[in-house]
Amino acid sequence: MSTGVLPARAAARHARPRLHPLRGAVPTAVLLLGAVYCLFPVTWVLIAATKTPGELFSTATLAIGSGLWSNIADLLAYRDGVFLLWLGNTVLYAGVGATLSAAVSALAGYALAKYRFPGRNLVFNLLIGGILVPAVVLAIPQYLLLSKAGLADTYWSVLLPQILSPYGIYLARIYAAAAVPDALVEAARIDGAGHGQIFFRVALPLMTPGLVTVFLFQFTAIWNNFLLPFIMLGDDRAFPLTVGLYTLLAAGANQPSLYNLILTGAMLSIIPLVALFLTMQRYWRTDLSRGAVKS
């Protein structure tokens, strides 16, 4: 690290730094090492999923195999196509859950940012305090309470507890405060618009980019969640991919002939989210520290 600092020091003495050919070499190299570390397992599984069970143990690590289509066909045929069901369930849980979460966060964030009313700080602190509550304190009683309501082991049991997002409300409040000018709200009021109309016609369009971010964070959180569905669900036809993959692993870990099935499953469960992640790059913002620790 320190070797790269020497040219920087030499250059800094002059008012306009001369461009040294090695400038930026050290940070570039460090970041590329980090990139290789982070991409390696993903690249590996993309390659491993193309190998037949025989090739998996015999060919070079990064040599592409010949079994991709037969692996996918095997996986889709596994227990009457339960894998596709898991994929569909995950899309449903994450899609519906994150949409509702963004809607609830938008309403709450807007109210907290644009109105002054008794109890405002109390409500905000309670909702935000949820960030600090460990999932463990919630998941078991949520299971028991939903069992009493007859909802355990149903789609509802995974969907409902994941709608409220303290972080989403926090972000929505920041976006509402920054993106919706008070003057605009007041002008709409003078024109005779009601509270609901102002929210839907004026505030919501302005808040949309921020709400996409809220949606993406919650979508990822639900897609990746393991503990909650693991506790809630017994019927494997309601499983999301994470729990399904786990059962696949638990069933096949001692049978090397099933490894290609597991690896193909892992690959297919990563691709949708990675694709979403790469196409929605500009919406991934993490301004969570701004204002959070100001006091």
């Binding site: 982070c38 991409l39 990822t220 990746n224 393991f226 786990y246 469960s269 990675v274 992640f277």
Partner: peptide, 12 residues
């Protein structure tokens, strides 16, 4: 690239 693993579920 370094942020990419965030999109990979913990189980995977």
């Amino acid at each position: 690239a370094i942020f990419l693993p965030y999109a990979v579920p913990g189980v995977a």
